[in-house]
């Protein structure tokens, strides 16, 4: 039982990171990014390219992945979403679907579709917590990464001038522009942070399982569940959302077998849409009339 809970917690940490990516983009850039799954996988494959294929030193791997992902975020905004400014939300969502398809093709073209094992930074993967309760080092690392990302995000949005301007632009982009804020750079930053969180989640997940586009992509899409439970635009709402999804998936697999992993999160989504579509922390968005 306890080891199940530990497993759920470790999984929740990854879901929290993915959910963070969904919420951040929805909130600052106003985009429901259905390419999140593909971008998660892309981040992990880029990391793997530097770490495993090229065998670069670890600091270079980390910084190189970060730089590449941030650059991808900037390109995504300037090349696609800046050009779609003023189009209805519908067009933005469809564009993310197109992006997902293109990224999948690119990834499969570059790295193929077989699962890979990534080069590991340390040995001795299994950590014994208590008697009979153990997890991998990567599980613990994922938890730490999630804590760090959420704490950093909290501090960033509350105390830094850039974070405050991002919140301003998220609330009202026209007023932000009238107030002299460089809204386009806010959007670039939104993409960069979201893609970084997504890449961390993808890498952690790949270390805990294996690296395959399909697996990481599916995880990234399921990450909309913690975001939805929390209300789609609430960063703090992601944490309970991630715990709920982590528990649902872990116990779903325990009760119904491994294939429940693929659907547990989606069932939670349908239930949430049915009983409380605005989520736990979202504002009510129900259309009057």
């Amino acid at each position: 039982m306890l080891s199940l809970l530990v497993g759920a917690l470790v999984l929740s940490a990854i879901y929290a990171l993915v959910g963070f990516a969904w919420v951040l983009l929805r909130r600052t850039n106003g985009i429901l990014n259905l390419a999140t799954g593909a971008q998660l996988a892309l981040g992990a494959f880029i990391f793997n390219q530097y770490a495993t294929s090229w065998g670069l030193p670890w600091p270079v791997v980390v910084l190189g992945t970060l730089a590449t992902v941030v650059a991808l975020g900037a390109v995504t905004h300037w090349l696609i979403f800046r050009k779609l400014a003023g189009q209805p939300e519908f067009a933005l969502v469809v564009a993310t679907l197109g992006l997902a398809s293109a990224l999948k093709g690119l990834s499969s073209l570059t790295w193929g579709t077989e699962a890979r094992v990534m080069r590991e930074p340390v040995e001795g993967r299994v950590v014994e917590l208590l008697d009979g309760v153990s997890t991998t080092l990567y599980g613990i690392f994922g938890l730490v990464a999630a804590l760090v990302v959420f704490a950093a995000a909290h501090a960033f949005f509350r105390y830094s001038t850039t974070g405050i301007r991002m919140r301003a632009a998220a609330e009202n982009s026209v007023l932000a522009s009238q107030g002299g804020i460089a809204v386009d750079w806010v959007y670039v930053l939104g993409w960069a942070i979201a893609l970084t969180a997504a890449a961390i989640a993808g890498i952690m997940y790949a270390y805990q399982t294996t690296l395959s586009f399909h697996g990481v992509d599916a995880l990234g899409l399921r990450g909309i569940a913690p975001a939805l439970v929390g209300g789609l635009t609430s960063i703090k709402g992601v944490i309970p959302g991630a715990l709920i999804i982590g528990l649902a998936e872990t116990f779903g697999v325990k009760l119904f077998g491994g294939s429940a992993q693929d659907v547990a999160a989606w069932v939670v989504i349908l239930v949430v849409l049915l009983i409380r579509p605005q989520g736990l922390f979202g504002e009510k968005q129900v259309e009057r009339v």
Partner: peptide, 28 residues
């Protein structure tokens, strides 16, 4: 704004979800 032309618009003059202090800090 860079040319010195600043508008206080008719509606939505402030960022409602930001505090008063943050509204001022948001100005570059």
């Amino acid at each position: 704004v860079g040319h010195g032309v600043v508008l206080v618009p008719e509606e939505n003059k402030v960022f409602r979800t930001l505090t008063v202090g943050e509204n001022l800090r948001a100005a570059p």
